[in-house]
């Protein structure tokens, strides 16, 4: 089990901590961005909006997610380079009924990572609503480091 899986979220708190840990362990860091597909179900609570309003909102979320991916990817790779850590970026998509943290756990298991680093609280999409870091701590196949504040890796 080797490598540090850095869960990327809007706060960016995990990036510095994840890269610092990877450098200390002499391992590679993988920045993980997860696309959620649960929004359609989540706004299923809504009974009466027009389908155009729903569709526009879902398109807006998708655009927002793509922009967040691009921004976090650039930031992660730039900070990794500055810190002298071997780094990769990966974007994955949740299965239809899967929560974000389930996808992170699946990825950590399949990739055989040694550590997961995640911001606390996790602020990505619907994850704050769905257990966030608590769900990750319960199901992770390896140690989880929670990043409560932003630190510089370099």
């Amino acid at each position: 089990m080797t490598g540090v899986l850095v869960v990327l979220d809007e706060s960016g708190k995990a990036i510095g901590q994840g890269l610092a840990l990877a450098r200390e362990l002499g391992q590679r860091a993988v920045g993980l961005f997860v696309y959620e597909r649960g929004w359609n179900v989540y706004i299923g609570h809504d009974w009466l909006s027009g389908s155009n309003a729903r569709a526009t909102f879902l398109e807006y979320v998708e655009e927002h997610e793509k922009a967040a991916e691009a921004e976090l990817k650039a930031r992660f790779l730039a900070e990794a380079q500055a810190a002298g850590v071997e780094a990769q970026f990966e974007a994955i998509c949740c299965d239809d009924l899967e929560h974000l943290t389930d996808a992170v756990i699946r990825e950590a298991r399949e990739g055989g990572y040694g550590h997961i680093v995640c911001a606390d609280p996790l602020t990505r999409g619907l994850s704050p609503r769905r257990g966030g870091t608590a769900a990750l701590l319960r199901g992770a196949p390896c140690p989880v480091v929670l990043a409560g504040q932003t630190v510089a890796a370099a």
């Binding site: 909006s49 309003a53 909102f57 398109e59």
Partner: peptide, 11 residues
Amino acid sequence: CGVSAAIATSP
């Protein structure tokens, strides 16, 4: 009206 208006306004 709650969720309908929230999702209509957000974008």
